[in-house]
């Protein structure tokens, strides 16, 4: 029986892996072609302001060196085969390997995204639960109003607002960047880093709350109207015990899944938030790579964010398979007669 479940999970992961491979291939091809047909001139982007000092012959030499004079498909194959060996190329604006930059920036973003993810998940879930348990009361109305307002608030605007209030007016937190300015890297303390993290993390979680809260609220209202809650009430359960026994377990699973599936929004939100706070994360790197025509970095980021979002969705699927007994033990009952034989 265990083996059977294991085999099923293995097959599931294999299929997901295949899907990921095809998705990555498609994404690589499409973004490569898009960039190829965009007005970005890789040579100009590489040379920058010294463009006037470079003659046409030198240009050709550079083009030959980078291989941009070859046909598009050959270029794609060159890039693709380098990609397969793990070589993402060198960033033109940072003059360092793309993989190093992504790694470093991702660590910064990870701190931001994880704290926002956990915060928004917990606060949103709690808000949804309270709203559903007190459905129709003033507290429910406030939470709903708050969520609808937030759901229609642009992230960057919320970031600016928070920046103005907490950094400029109240001066509680530094305004922007990942570490204090004018301090040597080895003198930067953990407290400094956390201090710089708080405002962007709060911005990102405030915006992320609405989704989970509204979803949890609706789901819990459905659960409370279900037959099994009616029966639980008929057996004398009520209030917090009722929620703890039947509400929580039936609502937590969809909420967790939703949080994992919201990785794409988290990433998108991070791009905007990091830009507003000049926080040196992946999002900010993406904006810079795009604006300054850093093709290798941009493509590397596209691939990385694809994997990131895909992993989020995969975790959402997996959490269902591992946590929901209907998925986990779905076959047990059907199987029984065959084991007996």
């Amino acid at each position: 029986m265990r083996k059977y479940i294991g085999g099923k999970l293995g097959l599931f992961l294999l299929l997901k892996g295949l899907r990921m491979a095809t998705l990555l291939f498609a994404i690589c091809l499409i973004s490569f072609l898009l960039i190829k047909n965009s007005p970005i001139d890789p040579i100009q982007a590489y040379i920058g302001a010294d463009m006037l000092k470079v003659g046409p012959e030198q240009r050709e030499k550079i083009a030959e060196y980078w291989g941009v004079d070859q046909p598009v498909m050959v270029q794609f194959l060159n890039w693709g085969s380098a990609l397969l060996t793990g070589d993402l190329g060198t960033s033109m604006i940072f003059r360092r390997p793309v993989i190093d930059i992504i790694g470093e920036r991702f660590l910064n973003s990870l701190a931001l995204m994880i704290s926002a993810w956990v915060l928004s998940g917990m606060i949103g879930f709690a808000m949804g639960v309270v709203a559903a348990m007190k459905k129709g009361t003033w507290i429910d109305r406030i939470i709903k109003w708050y969520c609808f307002t937030l759901a229609s608030t642009p992230t960057f605007w919320m970031g600016l607002l928070i920046l103005i209030v907490f950094a400029v007016w109240l001066k509680w937190f530094p305004f922007g960047m990942g570490v204090p300015a004018g301090v040597l890297a080895e003198n930067v303390t953990m407290v400094d880093r956390i201090n710089h993290l708080i405002l962007p993390a709060i911005t990102l979680s405030i915006v992320g709350v609405a989704n989970v809260a509204l979803h949890t609220r609706q789901k819990l209202i459905d659960v409370l109207a279900s037959d099994y809650v009616l029966f639980a009430r008929a057996r004398g359960e009520q209030g917090f015990v009722l929620f703890w026994r039947h509400g929580l377990r039936n609502v937590a699973l969809p909420a967790i899944t939703l949080q994992f599936a919201a990785f794409s929004e988290l990433f998108g939100g991070a791009v905007l938030t990091e830009q507003v706070f000049s926080y040196p994360g992946l999002g900010q790197a993406t904006v810079e790579a795009g604006l300054r025509g850093d093709v290798p970095l941009l493509l590397g980021l596209v691939i990385f964010s694809t994997i990131f979002v895909f992993v989020g969705n995969l975790l959402a699927d997996l959490s269902y398979r591992l946590l929901d007994p209907r998925m986990r033990e779905g076959r047990r009952y059907d199987f029984k007669p065959q084991i007996k034989k």
Binding site: S226, D227, Y228, L230, F231, A234, R249, R326
Partner: peptide, 15 residues
């Protein structure tokens, strides 16, 4: 006073 309900839907599906 106890209730005996109609069907299995009256049991918590995750318990």
């Amino acid at each position: 006073i106890a209730l005996v309900p109609q069907s299995v839907n009256f049991l918590d599906p995750l318990m």
